[in-house]
């Protein structure tokens, strides 16, 4: 019953454009665990372990998913993008900067997941209505902000992209 955990599996993941070997792992590990504990990518956060909070959101083959619900070893050969792959440290993306400027960040624990979800939303819908923002981000729970400043941040990005002709 209580056998030891075999920490001996090796495989490779494609994360943020790099091939990253995963070593000495247990195959039951979620992608979230492997990103954080094996690859040192600590930006994705775990807060519920069951897909109910969105803090661990990443892109797998361009789809926004909860990395806690992806078996890491099943994601070999898929393209994984994490918060660390959004923009280099010190050069935040427009979405990241808007979150800072609009007061959309308090404790910040949900923030990386929301940044991933917002980029995915604006990729699909350049000029979302407030209701579309709410529905598309409804898988990301924030306990600090009450969401108001986050919606403001998303709207600011949509406007500035439209103005600058990116949209």
């Amino acid at each position: 019953m209580s056998e030891s955990v075999a920490l001996n599996e090796q495989y490779e993941l494609h994360v943020n454009g790099e091939v990253r070997p995963v070593r000495d792992s247990w195959l039951g590990e979620s992608l979230l665990y492997v990103l954080r504990e094996r690859l040192g990518l600590l930006g994705s956060k775990g807060a519920c372990e069951q897909g109910e909070c969105g803090s661990c959101s990443v892109l797998v083959d361009d789809e926004l998913v909860c990395s806690c619900l992806v078996l890491a070893a099943s994601a070999v050969d898929q393209s994984i993008v994490t918060i660390e792959g959004v923009a280099p440290i010190g050069s935040p993306s427009d979405v990241q900067q808007a979150f800072v400027d609009a007061g959309a960040v308090q404790c910040g624990f949900c923030t990386p997941g929301l940044i991933m979800a917002t980029h995915a939303l604006l990729e699909r819908t350049a000029d979302p209505t407030e209701f579309e923002i709410r529905e598309e981000l409804s898988g990301n729970v924030c306990r600090c902000t009450g969401y108001g400043r986050i919606i403001e941040a998303v709207q600011r990005v949509a406007v500035s992209r439209r103005v600058s002709g990116q949209a």
Partner: peptide
């Protein structure tokens, strides 16, 4: 002034170290 948080940038970039990190 409504200035933004000094820890805002590391928080949005995922580089802020929470106790679980």
């Amino acid at each position: 002034d409504s200035i933004s948080r000094p820890d805002g940038t590391p928080k949005v970039q995922g580089s802020y170290a929470f106790s679980s990190d």
